[in-house]
Design a protein around this nucleic acid. Structure first.
Length: 265
DNA sequence: ATGGCAAATTGAATTTGA
């Protein structure tokens, strides 16, 4: 049986890796991360700032980007043993990449946002989102992951305590009943544990995203927890620490999402 | 569902995010 070493990993929807490269480097260093999973890198692999990140010490990288939209990356200071990706829903967009690091299988997912109208007959993006969740659910139900971590911007706040007002958001895409139900089903069908909830408990109000549209995001504080770190249940005893790095939302020209980190013992 | 913004691309306006 292979050993599973201590590791600190984080997930962050960066909303353009080129625009916020300095913040990527700062977060890697300040939070002393072994692995950082990014979403919405918004650039082709040829324009990804791989060299700058490698020079800072995170030389092992799995990158999958496209022009303008989407894009995922795994940055590691520990060697990557192998990478792969799935093309769920078959659109050829860059929403998943997986890497084997330290004996852990790490899945980085950028789930579709789903547009504005929560009805698949009126809004194909919402249908795409539901289909994507369904395919991811089936994928992990089949492979029954162990020694695995699933992170990313899942674009769904599953619990009432994951939004500023469950009543006011019940018809807003990201917190509708069907999305919440299907995401919980995705979690249970894959045998995943929500490490963030496990660490903070069920009652704490937790956000990882605040809209750019608020005049003052802290004053209005209308957040949602859209970003997640799930682990296979065999890793549950290794949850050492979880942090939601909310201070980054107050930085100059921030991403609208903040990093979440997990320390495995 | 009706936001008060932001980013990338193409070249002032559009698409997407959530």
């Amino acid at each position: 049986m292979e050993n599973t070493p201590a590791m600190r990993l984080a997930t962050w929807n960066i909303n353009s890796v080129r625009l916020r490269l300095q913040y990527v480097l700062r977060v890697l260093k300040e939070y002393d991360l072994d692995v950082l999973c990014l979403q919405e890198t918004k650039t082709q692999d040829s324009s990804f700032p791989a060299q700058e990140i490698a020079d800072a010490g995170w030389a092992h990288q799995a990158i999958r980007g496209e022009k303008s939209y989407n894009g995922v990356a795994i940055l590691s200071r520990i060697p990557i043993d192998g990478t792969e990706f799935q093309d769920w829903v078959g659109k050829g967009d860059c929403r998943h990449i997986s890497a084997s690091i330290n004996g852990y299988q790490i899945h980085n997912i950028y789930l579709p946002a789903g547009g504005d109208i929560p009805d698949r007959n009126e809004n194909v993006k919402f249908g795409h989102k539901l289909d994507f969740v369904s395919e991811v659910t089936d994928y992990f139900a089949k492979i029954k992951p162990v020694k695995s971590v699933l992170v990313g911007d899942l674009n769904i706040a599953p619990l009432a305590e994951d939004v500023w007002s469950t009543k006011q958001l019940k018809n807003v895409v990201s917190h509708t009943e069907i999305e919440r139900k299907n995401l919980i089903n995705m979690q249970t069908a894959g045998g995943w544990i929500d490490s963030v909830r496990r660490f903070f408990g069920p009652d704490e109000i937790l956000y990882s995203w605040w809209s750019y549209r608020a005049r003052d995001y802290l004053a209005s504080n209308r957040g949602r927890r859209l970003d997640h770190i799930w682990i296979s249940s065999d890793l549950e005893p290794q949850i050492e620490k979880v942090k939601i790095h909310a201070e980054t939302r107050g930085w100059e020209k921030p991403s609208d999402h903040v990093p979440i980190s997990l320390q495995l013992s």
